[in-house]
Design a protein around this nucleic acid. Structure first.
Lengths: 201, 201, 201, 201
DNA sequence: ACGGGCGGGACTGCCCGTTGGT
DNA sequence: ACCAACGGGCAGTCCCGCCCGT
C-alpha cells in the first residue's frame, strides 16, 4: 500500500541483506548447525543482540526473502472472476519466476539448505502453509467464494506441488526453468488425481 | 522379522506412553511452551536425562505415535497392480481411521496442539513429508512405476489433503468422521484441479 | 595500551572475584568434586548460565588469577642483554613472590587443590606450560636469540622447578618463603645436572 | 614380578588394543572432540558401557600404552650406585627408544593429538608427572638417597626435557631419532643452567 | 536503535551405579 | 559370572528472551 519504503526501512533492508550474506557464506563453509549466531554476528560486525533485532530466529536468516511481502500485490493484480486454482497457479508462477531470475545461485544454495537441514525444512514447510493460509483469508473478499474446504485444500495442494517442484529442480542441479518443473508437476498431479475412482463413501 | 516385541521392548513402550500421557496432561493444563522438560520428568518420576532417552526432543512427545511404524505393513498389504494414488488414498484412510477409533479425544488434543503451536506444526508437516518420502521410496519395488515426479507430487498433494482435512475436522470440533472429511477434501481438490486450463507451456 | 581498565572491566573483575571466593569457600567445605556449579552459582547469587560467562569451565575458577596477565609486563621490564634462563628465573621469582605476599592462605588453599584433584593438576600443568610457550614466543624479539630448543627446554625445566617448589612448600605446610624453596630447588637441579656424564652420542 | 600374563589378561589387552585402534582411526578422520565414545564403541562392536570397562575415560584411549607398566622393570635393572639423574636419563632413553622402534607412525599420530588437543595435553603432562612421582617413590629403597627435593626436581626437570624433545621432534615431522633430540635438549638445558649466576639469597 | 549483561530452557556428552538377561 | 541395557547426574553450549544504559 505504501510503496515509498521510508529511508529507515531501506537501511534496515540493506543491513538485513548484509547479515544474510555473511550468514550464508558461513553456512556454506561450515554447515548450518556448526555455525553459531555469535559467529554470524561477528562476521557481520554487529552484536549478537542486534542479530535478533533483524531476524527473530537463526532459522529466519535462511527463510527470509526480500521480496516475500510482494505476494499480496500479486494476488490483488489478478482478475476477480478467475477461479481460485488458476489464480494461485499464476501467483506461484510469477513468484517462482521472480526468485529464479533475481539470483539463481542464491536460490540453489538456499534450497539446498532447506532440503537438507531438518529444522529449516520444517520451518520452510510451515512458512509455505502460512502463506497459503494468508492467501485463503484474502479470497473471501472476492466475488464467488467457493466453499472454504475447496479453497484450503487447493492452496495446500498447490503448495505441495511447488515444494515438490523446487526439490526436484534442485536435486537435478538447478538446470532448466523451475517454472517448467512446476507445470510438469501440476500436470502429473492432474493425471494422478483423475485416475482416482469416484469416491464411493 | 521378530514380531514378539521382546519384553524389553514392551517395557520401553510402556514407559514412553506413560511419559507421553503425563506430558499431554501438563500441556493441556499449562500450555506447551510453559511446560518445561524438567516438569514433565518430575511428573513422570524420571530424570530429565532419561526423558531425552525416550524422546529425542520435547516436540517428539507430541509427535510420536505408537502405531506409526505400521504404515509400512499397510503399504505391503495393497495389491501391486493398483495405481499409486489409489494406494496412497487407501493407506491414508486406514491410518486415519485407526487413529480416530483408538482415541478420539487424544487425537483432538494432539491435533489442537499441532495446529496452534508453530514449532509443533512445523515439525508435524515435516514428519508427514518424510512419511511421504518413505512411501515413495518403497514404490519402485512395485510393478509399473510411473515417473518419479508424478509419484512424488501425488504423495505430497495427498499429504496436503490429509493435513487440511484434519485441520478442518478439528476446527469443527471433531464431530463426524475424519475419513469423510478427507474424502470430501480430495473430491474438492479434484474439482479444482480439473478446472485448470491445460498447461500452455 | 589502555591501562585504565574501563569501569566495565573493573566490574567484571569484581564479580569474577566474588564468584571465585564463594567457590573456594564451598570447595574447602565440601570438596571440589562434590560441589556443583549450580551450588556455586546459587552461593554467588547468579544463574548457572552466568557462571560460565565468567569462567569457561569449573576448573578455571581455581586456576584463574587476577594478576596472571601481568607476566607480560614483567618480561618487558627485564634488560634485553640478559641470558634467557636468568630472565625466566627473575620473572618467576617476582610472580611467585607477588602471589605469596598478596594472600598466603588463599595460595595455600589453591595449591592444595591443585595438588590433590587430578583434573585440576592436569589443567594447572598445562596452563604453566602454555605460559612458558607464551614467554618463549616473546623472546625472539630480543637480541641474541639462542637456538629455539635451548629456549624451550629452559622454560619447560624452570616451569618444572616452580611446580616442584610450590608442591614441596605446600606439603611442608606453607611455612617459610616459596621463593627460597624455588631457589633451593633450582640449585639442586643444577647440582644434579652437572653430575651427568657428558653425552657420548 | 609375575611375567606370565594369565590368558585372561592377554585377551583383555587384545581387546584394549582393538578399541584403541578403532578410536585412533576415528580421531584421525573426524578429530578427537567430534568423535563420541558411542561412535568408538559402535566401531569396536562393543557397548558404550564396556568401553569404560577398558578405559576409565575417553582420554585414556590416547594416553594408554601397552608397554607403560614396564618402566618399573627398567628402573630395577639399573645399578644401585648410579646417581639418580643418570638413572632417569637411562630409563627415559630406553623407554623413548622402545616407543619409537615399535611403531613410529603410531607414536607420531598420538603425539600430534597430545600436542594439539588441550585436554589430552593436560592429562598427558599429568601422567608424565605421575610417572616421575612413582619413580621417585621407588628410589629411597636404593642406597644413597640424596635429599628428596633434589630427587623430585630432577625427575620433574627430566620429564620436562622429554616432553620438550618429543614436541620438537613431532613438529619437525618425526624425522631422525627422538632419543637424539632428547640428548640435545638435555645438553642445551645443562648449558642454560650453568650460565645461571650462583644464587645470592 | 544499538550494545551489553543476565537469565533460562533445550539438549548433548561423559561417566557411573545398578539390574536383569544369558 | 559377565556384560548389555538402563537410568541418573553433572558439565557445558546454544538459542533466545528481558532489561538497562546510551
Amino acid at each position: 500500500v505504501n510503496d515509498s519504503p521510508s529511508l529507515r526501512e531501506r537501511k534496515r533492508t540493506r543491513t538485513r541483506l548484509m547479515i544474510q550474506a555473511e550468514a550464508m557464506r558461513l553456512f556454506a563453509a561450515k554447515g548450518y548447525d556448526a555455525t553459531t549466531v555469535e559467529e554470524i554476528a561477528e562476521a557481520a560486525a554487529i552484536s549478537p543482540r542486534t542479530f535478533f533485532r533483524y531476524f527473530p530466529t537463526k532459522e529466519d536468516v535462511v527463510l527470509w526473502d526480500e521480496y516475500d511481502p510482494q505476494i499480496g500485490d500479486l494476488l490483488a493484480a489478478r482478475p476477480a472472476a478467475e477461479p481460485p486454482a488458476e489464480t494461485l497457479r499464476a501467483i506461484i508462477r510469477e513468484a517462482l519466476g521472480g526468485l529464479q531470475e533475481r539470483d539463481r545461485d542464491e536460490l540453489l544454495t538456499r534450497t539446498r539448505l532447506l532440503r537438507l537441514v531438518p529444522e529449516l525444512r520444517a520451518r520452510f514447510l510451515e512458512l509455505q502453509a502460512e502463506a497459503g493460509e494468508m492467501m485463503v483469508s484474502l479470497f473471501p473478499d472476492r466475488a464467488e467464494c467457493t466453499d472454504e474446504l475447496e479453497l484450503r485444500v487447493t492452496a495446500a495442494a498447490l503448495n505441495a506441488v511447488v515444494v515438490t517442484a523446487i526439490d526436484q529442480w534442485e536435486k537435478a542441479g538447478g538446470k532448466g526453468d523451475v517454472v517448467d518443473v512446476f507445470e510438469q508437476a501440476l500436470e502429473a498431479l492432474r493425471r494422478a488425481i483423475e485416475e482416482l475412482q469416484p469416491t464411493s463413501s
